[in-house]
Nucleic acid binder design. Sequence first.
DNA 1: GACACGTGGGC
DNA 2: TGCCCAAGTGT
Length: 389
Amino acid sequence: MTSNTAESETQLFEPATLKSFRADLKRWYRKAGRELPWRLTADPYRIWLSEIMLQQTTVAAVIPYYERFLDRFPDVMALAVAEEAEVLRLWEGLGYYSRARNIHKTARIVAEERNGEFPRSAAELHELPGIGRYTAGAIASFAYDLPAPILEANTQRLYARLLAYDRPLQSTVAQKTLWGFAEQLVPKRDPGLFNQALMELGGQICKPADPLCDACPVSRHCRAFEQQRQQEIPHPKKKIELTDVVHLCVAVKQDDRFLVRQYSPEERWAGLWDFLRWEQNDFPILKRSRSRKSGELFTDHDLFPQEFARAEQLLRERYQLQAEIQDLALTIKHGVTRYRITLLCLVAEFDVNLNDDQPGDQQWVTREQLKELPLSKTGRQFANHLLNQ
DNA sequence: GACACGTGGGC
DNA sequence: TGCCCAAGTGT
């Protein structure tokens, strides 16, 4: 069989290949697999929580969140009776906050409609909020040892290389082919262990750049390796253009309280709180920066004197902020989907007449309340900056 | 089917 | 520094 086969002709594995592939992979995983916290349990609640947290998120980032979350909510009933705000507070900094809202919704469904018991099939798990086909298969195989296939970033790359599948992976036909391969691969015996092993291999050996083929236990079954095309498979993704935007952020202060608002459901960071914040379409992009770690903040009027003067002018003219703007200020750079945001943060002593053009609830909160509120990443950075004054 | 959704780490 | 990537899902 040659490469560049049409979708419909993609050859999967022969039965004999399948058998030795599975044996090689399991042998390797028993020796090389990591002992991650969620691999030490078969509790569907814990498996579910870990799988949601791990969506588009690295293992290293998840571990501390996973531990804290379980300390506070040891089972699905504890989570179900919690306030959404507290769930979001525990999720703060992890990103993709719809996951936190969905995990709360699902906890309530499982608690109220299923007496605290998770569904025991991938199909039923798939119906719950935040559980797609991958996560349903992961829970079914890890918690119940059901032979459900999985396809996610690690296994997608692995399968593509095993099959020397060199077309773009996002198309419907590609996904159909790879899911079909996953179905073929998953064994009836120890499917949970096997699925873990597939992901471990994809993550630790079959890496995106410079895969460790010399250390790979299944390289003899890999068509990309056979053809020495592991560097060009999978097909590279089309790159996404970033747009620079400037946001103005104002911590309005009165006595010992700060004005905050909650993002409404249609907005990014829905459900989280922040200081007042406006996107500036006509603001010059700040190019200069001080040498620093990404995401770190650096105060100053000194580095961007004209920009801060302009920011103050806009607050007065455009937003009718009749307040005394204090010298304390900082800029924060951060990225979100398709945007690179430069945030100009200012502090203003409240006077009167703030033009109220922001959606969502506004509230005055004390310093102590600010600590407990779920904030966006930059909101928390700014808040810490203020609280440490 | 394309796009939105957040953040942190590696090179 | 800039770019790529990460145990996807919902719309």
